[in-house]
């Protein structure tokens, strides 16, 4: 059962340093995009990696596409040995990004995000202008519709046009 909202809550309540990017960020700004994964850019300090592992561990993460019969050990040292990860979990797919093309790493993204109240907890969500920068930098055909939505939302936010 996909429950990306609950994953965001768990991350926030465990004081994980992260910024929500990608489809969930677009959705939270009002986009009509439906996504099955939660993309976050995360701080790569050891302390933060331990917090992420503590939250995701019980969700039984495995690399997406990995043969189910193969064993996989997930702990905070797993996260030390890479930067970007694409996991499937019992609450949906979760992508951990150490860097976002066009924007940089966690600290760069924090300054480009807004703190959003999400019914009892808060999370950093990448701003519309920064999402546009990231999508443009990625240059993927699959992002074309998302970009059109972001441009429209940005324009709708402007006081005058």
């Amino acid at each position: 059962m996909i429950n990306l909202f609950e994953v965001a809550r768990k991350l926030s309540e465990s004081e994980v340093e992260f910024v929500i990017v990608g489809g969930v960020a677009i959705r939270s700004h009002g986009g009509n995009y439906v996504t099955e994964d939660l993309d976050i850019c995360y701080s790569r300090t050891n302390e933060n990696l331990k917090r992420i592992a503590a939250v995701l561990g019980p969700l039984r993460p495995r690399p997406r596409g990995m043969e189910k019969s193969l064993p996989y050990v997930f702990d905070w040292t797993t996260l030390q040995h890479g930067t970007n990860f694409t996991f499937e979990t019992v609450m949906g797919d979760i992508d951990l990004l150490g860097e976002v093309k066009g924007l940089g790493s966690y600290l760069d993204l924090v300054s480009e995000s807004i703190v959003v109240d999400l019914d009892g907890f808060s999370a950093n969500i990448l701003s519309i202008p920064a999402l546009i920068v990231a999508k443009e930098a990625a240059g993927r055909p699959k992002d074309e519709a998302g970009l059109k939505v972001l441009y429209a939302l940005q324009e709708a936010e402007l006081d005058e046009f």
């Binding site: 996909i2 429950n3 949906g92 999400l118 939505v149």
Partner: peptide, 29 residues
């Protein structure tokens, strides 16, 4: 792009928008 969907989403709170995404994603699955 269906602009009426954007209007409907903008009438919701950010948490409601994410929860509705979860519902829609589960329906698609």
């Amino acid at each position: 792009i269906d602009l009426t969907q954007l209007i409907e989403n903008l009438r919701l709170s950010p948490s409601e928008r994410i929860k509705r995404n979860d519902d829609a994603a589960n329906s698609m699955v």
